[in-house]
């Protein structure tokens, strides 16, 4: 299971590389993600790839990323503990306020029982915690036909 991911509600092989220690000597492509500080540093370099993945830790400032999202191929949201809910707000802001259309990947302590919440917040790719069954977890997406927050605002 360690080599599988959920992408748009389908189980597929993992395609992204998370370089959470920083890029070091790695080859950087649009499918590698590096920490936010490294991402900012890379933007100014001439040999930088046109787009690259960027890691957001729970404590990172997502607002500063807005003007650089054209260089982000995807955003990897780190959930060190599943009970830390900051990543949900990051996903929400990326999708609804900044209009980010690339993949948003949740990785780390990502569990079946939180998939729907993450999906509804804007996450579409999941690297689940070791030992989680991605195929069994897919039922989370179909558990609810509708959601609360209906009918609050005129449609």
């Amino acid at each position: 299971m360690g080599n599988r991911m959920i992408f748009d509600q389908v189980v597929v092989p993992r395609r992204y590389t998370i370089l959470d220690d920083g890029p070091h000597e790695s080859v950087l492509t649009s499918e590698t993600a590096i920490p936010l500080a490294d991402f900012y540093e890379l933007l100014g370099r001439e040999d930088a790839p046109s787009t690259i993945g960027v890691i957001l830790e729970p404590g990172d400032d997502v607002t500063g990323l807005e003007s650089h999202l054209d260089r982000a191929s995807f955003v990897a949201l780190h959930f060190p503990k599943f009970t830390d809910g900051r990543g949900y707000s990051h996903a929400r802001l990326l999708r609804t306020r900044y209009g980010f259309e690339g993949a948003i990947l949740a990785y780390g302590d990502v569990l079946r029982d939180q998939l729907l919440l993450m999906h509804r917040s804007g996450v579409n790719a999941f690297y689940m915690r070791e030992g989680q069954d991605e195929v069994a977890a897919l039922e989370a997406f179909n558990r609810f036909e509708e959601q609360y927050q209906f009918g609050l605002y005129p449609t």
Partner: peptide, 16 residues
């Protein structure tokens, strides 16, 4: 009641 419908199972605020 409107706030109940807003906050119930809100995806963003389950782990405050």
């Amino acid at each position: 009641e409107m706030l109940r419908q807003y906050k119930e199972l809100h995806p963003e605020f389950a782990f405050l």
